[in-house]
Structures are given as structure tokens and as C-alpha cells.
Design a protein around this nucleic acid. Sequence first.
DNA 1: TCCATTATTCAATAACTCTTGATATATTGA
DNA 2: TCAATATATCAAGAGTTATTGAATAATGGA
Lengths: 113, 113
Amino acid sequence: MDESQVIGALSALSQETRLRMLRYLVKAGPAGAPAGEIGEAVGSSSSRNSFHLNALAQAGLITSQRQSRRIIYRVDFAKVGAMVGYLVQDCCGGNAQVLACCQPGCCDGEGGV
Amino acid sequence: MDESQVIGALSALSQETRLRMLRYLVKAGPAGAPAGEIGEAVGSSSSRNSFHLNALAQAGLITSQRQSRRIIYRVDFAKVGAMVGYLVQDCCGGNAQVLACCQPGCCDGEGGV
DNA sequence: TCCATTATTCAATAACTCTTGATATATTGA
DNA sequence: TCAATATATCAAGAGTTATTGAATAATGGA
């Protein structure tokens, strides 16, 4: 993943509706979820929903597949991982403090940053 | 770190000049670097430089400290870590594939995504 | 074929972001 | 105090992004 792809991915995620969409799709797992269900979950209506799902797909973070009348969206974990990996390794040079934050419980709750 | 802080941080990094500034400051380490040096390194002039450094500082990703005539900027690794940690843990639920990409060499070179 | 469902596209508008060049502020040394 | 250095701020303009409501397209069932 090169710099401009990373910027595209970060840009896609730097928006409330889209960040929530990704989170919802992560929970949905490999089965994915149809557009309407995602829209309902994050509270975005019809055209707005398509707009944001398209932005995530353009960035490569999710994929789409028609299934009868519905369009199923799924997280592309390899792409999300590549983006995070770029931040941690390429950008932060594998900094130990940054790496530590990737572990569960590191930055949670009261003690969090 | 809450959702809106994460969005602010992602938004700050989803820009070529600022992503390069952060990378430069990571390399500079704890000593940090003065604004002018950063601007020269990333190729941004005076006002543009201030604009982008301010954006990174507003997002909490870097700190500033006057030192005589210069203003020294430094990466706040805790904040960068918190952002990455949010993506990996809160947003991706600690997904194994995403976590694996945080390790050195995972997504480098030819085999990369 | 007709209708309902599901989702996308389009046009208009509002809001935000980035760049530029000019100006202003803070600090230091002569 | 004056000039030089280092940086920040301001105003205008171009470009981009997000929202809305209406219209369009694709699919499946009566």
C-alpha cells in the first residue's frame, strides 16, 4: 500500500458515518451486511448511505456483491490491516509505544489517552 | 480517546503534507524539529507550514514548544498510539489479520496489499 | 406485466479545506 | 532602537465534500 492509497483510506475513515459503517461491518463479519441494514444501523438514509458506502469501497476498505435485490458489503480486512500497518511501521517506524497500543486493553477506559 | 477525537486525528493525517510532517517528526525523535526545518523537509512554505502544523497540533498528534526564536514540534506518541489502538481494538475488535499487519515486514514490498 | 423492494445516481446547495501572498508578532543581536 | 530571523495570522479564491430530495435502475413475486 503506497502513500496515496493510505491517504485515501484515512480520508474515508475520517468521517463519523463511515467510521460507524466500518465498525458495523466488522461486527457483521465475513457474512457482511446489505446496504439497507447498514444504513439503518448508522442512521443514514438512502442516497447518503450509497454515497458513504461508495466512498469506503473506493478507498478499498470494503467490497460489494449483489445478492438478489440486495447489495452485500464486507470489510476487506487485508486493506484495513495494510492501512494500520503503514501507520505503525512505515510512518511511525515501529515505535514501541504505538505498537503497545494495538494490544487489547492498552488504551481503554479511565487510563486512556 | 473517543470517536470524535479519532476522527479528528484521522482527518489530520489524511493529507499528504501532514502525513509527511508526522513521518519527519517521528524520525526526529524526542528532540523534535523546528517549524522551518519541517517545512523544508516536506516542501511547504511559511503560511502553509503553519497551517498544517497547527492542524496536527489541534488533532493532538504533535506538541509545540517555543525555544528562543524557533518553535519546536514533537510527535505525541501516546496520541498516535491511541488513534491506532482505537482502529485496531475498538473499531476492528482486535481482528487477528489487522493485528498481524502491525508487525514489521508484514505488508512490505512485493507481497504487500 | 405490474408492483413492491432495494439500492444508486443526479442536481442543487451548503459547508469545509487548501493554497497564496501580504501582513503581523516574537525573539535576538548589532 | 533597528534590522534580521523565525513563525503565525489574515483574507480571498479555488476546489472538495456532505446533505437533501427527486428521479432512475435492477430484481423478484403476484
